[in-house]
Simulated assay, not measured.
Amino acid sequence: MDSTPDQPVPPPEDPRDDSAAASEPVVPPEDATPPGAASVPGDAGSPPPPGLPPIPQAPGNPYAAGPQVPGQWQQSGQPQPGPMGYAPGAWTPPVPERKGLSFGAGLGIGIAIGVVAHVLAVVAMFASVNMLSGNGGILGLLWPFLLIAIAAIVMMFFRATRSYATGILIIAAAAWLIVIGPCIVILGGFS
């Protein structure tokens, strides 16, 4: 069954007289406050009622004016904060300031330090072999390389030197796999 009426119902007629609409418009008086009455409490510039503390002014919007700083409301044609304090797309998170070098730059510097340290370790190894006249054994040969690896491992515990230590350890691992390990096997024999 259908609930719509068959015939549309005409709107009810306005009981007012159309002649009243043509008369003069109603204008409110300029000042409706009777003489001698106090102004409405809370109006800007009005004195507080006697016996009550003054009404503090509401703080202004700190984001409404001032320089455009990341992390504040932007003023370049974007909407202002709504009643909940948010406007779509108007908030930009603050960008943290970078301190020092990036991890990649520290890694590259650490690789360069590792290469130079291992070249100096080869020189120190031959110098110690000559001083010991070959009686130092395997530790007499490897002490500079072990010293570099231990120093880099200690540097890994500190955030400021971690990227450098990573680069040094990469070169130390490569040196042990490519140079030091095969040299030990050759010098010690395959037995």
Rank of each mutant, 00 (worst) to 15 (best):
F126N: 05
A160H: 06
L120R: 09
G137K: 04
A121Q: 09
L139G: 12
L139I: 07
L169D: 11
A165G: 05
A160S: 14
L169A: 12
G140W: 02
G136A: 01
A172F: 09
G181N: 15
G140K: 01
A121W: 02
I186V: 15
A160P: 09
V122H: 05
G181A: 12
S163N: 13
G137Y: 05
I150G: 09
F126K: 01
T161S: 15
L146A: 09
G181L: 12
A149G: 05
G189H: 15
G134H: 05
I171A: 11
L120K: 13
A117I: 02
I171Q: 10
G136F: 01
A165W: 00
L147C: 01
Y164L: 10
I184V: 15
I138Y: 02
T166W: 11
L142Q: 06
I186P: 00
M156F: 08
G137N: 04
Y164E: 00
A172P: 08
L120T: 10
I150P: 04
S163M: 10
G188I: 11
G137C: 04
P182H: 04
A175T: 10
M125T: 15
H118D: 05
R159V: 04
R159N: 13
I153T: 12
A173L: 14
G167Y: 00
L141K: 03
V154W: 02
A117L: 07
A127L: 03
Y164C: 04
A172G: 13
A151W: 03
L141H: 00
L142F: 09
A121D: 13
H118N: 05
I138W: 02
I171S: 13
V185W: 15
N135L: 07
L132P: 08
